[in-house]
Nucleic acid binder design. Structure first.
Lengths: 352, 352
DNA sequence: TTCATCAATGCAAGCGATTGCACATATAAA
DNA sequence: TTTATATGTGCAATCGCTTGCATTGATGAA
């Protein structure tokens, strides 16, 4: 292919201003408003004029300036998506769900990651508000304890839907999982399979998800008449170091755990690896259950039992709720609880 | 917990219009231009006035309207990121690299996925152009063969940097991997380890990355004096079905492959799983090499040899290049080749 | 023929910032 | 004291599009 002609480099430091509706209007000797209406397919414009205008727009290579349009319309057709991190299976699925609905309805999405920093989350909310997104869907950072930044968002009249990690003190629509039940089912499953000394590698309890896990862990152990060793009930930031250290400590105790419930799949994979290094047979000596899923869990040996969360569904639902608020401004504060599934694989099931 | 007080619902269908610089100006009896300058910390405004204005802005809960600002300034401080899919380790890393540099320099990023559809890619480019992003960083879809949409983008004076999957016919800055070398090193490694019948599970050759793999595969086999069985040289869309089918066919042949080079890590993981189901010992009966990496490769047994691509680095570099073009409008058309690393793990190395 | 009605288009005022230029003080230099 | 030079603000146009209202000419009803 030859680009000799087209590749004429434009050296001007300033962008050559592009074609506007005024250019079209001038060429056709009509009013800019007519051009605007025609391009928006208003039915107040005759078909003949529309055709003429559309053709001329095509000819001149006109491209709508959304910035101007947004300013005038007071709506950007953009929705902000705030997630802790982007490289995570669950959030990827949620984003996919959001995007699916959004793009169907003509909305763009602006993704930002908090990297689990409250400070960054605050800043992101300010930016979302400044860019005048039409709405925000967010999953709070682990550090987030207060809601001042959410209240500000609300004050700027930007609808907000929270998912997964939420703050119950803040009034808005929420799409969540029954985290208590997630843990309850996990513990019960392990109990039924004959495991007695169950450890919990949990997240920081400042976050609702993890505090609910923690509560369910204690309560269910009691219900199942299983011992709750305080040192088996860990809440940490779940870094690789945290996990290694926990494993080291646990397996140097007199009574060692025979099952570990891990807050997420990354941690579970690491636990599985470390367990193998300790020559522990899975699931005979040690069971592993992960409270979130990702494909890799099915590729390791043995496959790891995990809780499947409906990420895409959560995304879709959140987006639909948000659209309702955007369109009809009917603020609702109800919380939707999505179903999950405990998928039992070989890491936690054997005949004692 | 009680929500009674906070739940005062605002029923108004219309967003209460927010505070503008004019409101601040009126209250303080100064000109809007003064407010604008003060908030932008212009040094033409006295410190006293600035203080007054900033305080009033704070008091009224003022929040800059970026839309208006963008229209006036003719720049959005937003850069568009176009990737095939979001749920992919490599692209996640690239996005992280981009975001790191971008947020340091005060840029937001707008992420869109093509889902490997050329049609969607075209549409995304139109949107990017309409929203007047200051620049675009893109990795082309597998289907993309033509560059009309890129030329249009260029015509709207939006700088573009391509990474990984590029089109050599299109003039712009590119950040890529030496795909030929990736394959060459993989084949040579397998040859050195004593494998003879190497199969290639490749991607569609319409895409430069995969066609380079394919060429390197043939050439390196020849160089290493190894047989090239045409049926071992596969180019497909790499769906799960494609892979299953390929495996079925290959292992029903008279001469079965003793090594498989898989175009990406998902495929490699699946191959590894299927191989186990066929009771093939890895790496004794079958070696596996993946041409991209993800953490899961280190969790499976045996760990899978793979090519580590510098995703974050690619992202950072692309963003830096883009910023140069945005800032100085110095169009350069050079291609940067980033180093990769073949990490040899247990799936491809044993003592024959 | 006259008046109401309607369809098609134009006029002009926004939207909320930014910015070149003019203008008023104040200060310094002559 | 007069003139040059800063310094700090205000004026008004502008960015490109949207939209309420006015206008025009044509059509149909009275």
């Amino acid at each position: 292919m030859l680009f000799l002609h087209k590749s004429k480099v434009q050296i001007n430091p300033m962008a050559k201003s592009s074609i506007t509706i005024n250019d079209i209007a001038r060429e056709l000797k009509v009013a800019p408003s007519t051009v605007s209406r025609a391009l928006n397919n208003s039915r107040k414009i005759s078909e003949a004029t529309k055709k003429k205008i559309v053709e001329k727009a095509e000819e001149l290579g006109y491209n709508l300036n959304m910035v101007a349009s947004s300013l005038s319309r007071k709506t950007t057709n953009t929705i902000g998506v705030v997630i802790p991190v982007i490289n995570n299976h669950f959030y990827n699925e949620v984003v996919n769900g959001i995007e699916e609905i959004a793009s169907n309805r003509g909305y763009r999405i602006l993704i930002s990651q908090t990297k689990e920093s409250f400070h960054k989350e605050e800043e992101i909310m300010r930016t979302m508000s400044a860019t005048r997104v039409d709405g925000v869907i967010a999953c709070l950072s682990r550090e987030t304890k207060t809601t001042g930044h959410l209240i500000k968002l609300e004050k700027s009249n930007i609808p907000l839907v929270l998912f997964d990690r939420v703050n119950y003190d803040f009034q808005c629509r929420k799409v969540i999982i029954d985290n208590f039940s997630v843990m309850e089912q996990s513990v019960s499953h392990l109990a039924r399979s004959g495991y007695k000394n169950i450890a919990h590698l949990g997240g920081p309890t400042s976050c609702n998800v993890y505090s609910e896990h923690a509560r369910a862990f204690s309560e269910t152990l009691k219900k199942e008449n299983l011992p709750l060793h305080p040192q088996y009930h860990l809440a940490s930031d779940i870094t690789e170091e945290d996990i290694s250290e926990a494993m080291k400590i646990w397996f140097s105790l007199k009574v060692k755990p025979d099952a570990i419930i891990s807050v997420n799949s990354n941690a579970a994979l690491l636990v599985s690896k470390l367990a193998k290094e300790l020559h522990l047979a899975i699931p005979e000596n040690l069971a592993i259950v992960s409270l979130t899923s990702e494909p890799a869990l099915q590729y390791v040996e043995p496959q790891i039992t995990s809780v499947e969360l409906p990420g895409t569904d959560i995304g879709r639902t959140s987006m639909k709720f948000l659209l309702e608020e955007i369109r009809y401004r009917n603020r609702k504060f109800d919380t939707t609880i999505k179903p999950f599934q405990l998928i039992i694989r070989n890491s936690s099931f054997h005949n004692h």
